[in-house]
Amino acid sequence: MIATKSIQFAYEGVPAFEIPDIEIKAGEALLVLGKSGSGKTTFLNILGGLLAPGKGEILIDGISLYSLKGQNLDKFRGKNIGIVFQKPHILGPLSVAENIALPHFFSKSSQADNVDHYLKELGILDKKNARINTLSEGEAQRVSIARALVNEPKIILADEPTASLDDENAKIVVDLLKTQAAKLKAALVIVTHDQRIKNEINQSITLKRKDL
């Protein structure tokens, strides 16, 4: 489903990251580990079409991600890649349901109205019309997962999704990501240094920076 070929990336004045080639099949999950500063988030941004690599190629379902430009890349990302951030980053002026429906609007996706379905799957249906600032941390993270899932993407990327959650919520979030990715037959990539997740997912790679 997603494969990378000899990706190279370096920030100015910092030695390049060592990024191994990966390949994840539909329905599989991969854990990306590494110390802070080893380029985990950068790698995730590159996979998500948010940051073009210096060299190399990312193939998603056979399409070279960065051969797409401008709007095409944005729409492709919206349709095929669901991203869960470390912080929920939910849009304050909108309600929970409106936040989750937003990817439909931006990617002009013709999917059926499945907002309620995902609200139910993630156990937050009762929060449908709630204001964002009334949500707890765990609920907010679940809203952001629902938003990542609503376009039924082929790839789900999660950046430290459990970093700010307690044990109970962390377990719920990881379970949700695993089961939903399996249901959608999507490739799941979780970037983390959270020890609590390590036992949940079998495949993993570890990133290093040349000088670390």
């Binding site: 948010l50 709007q71 919206g78 980053h89």
Partner: peptide, 16 residues
Amino acid sequence: KYDLAVMRAIGASKEQ
């Protein structure tokens, strides 16, 4: 800024 970046991440174009 965050909101705008999130919108881009979920499929909004620069023009939008």
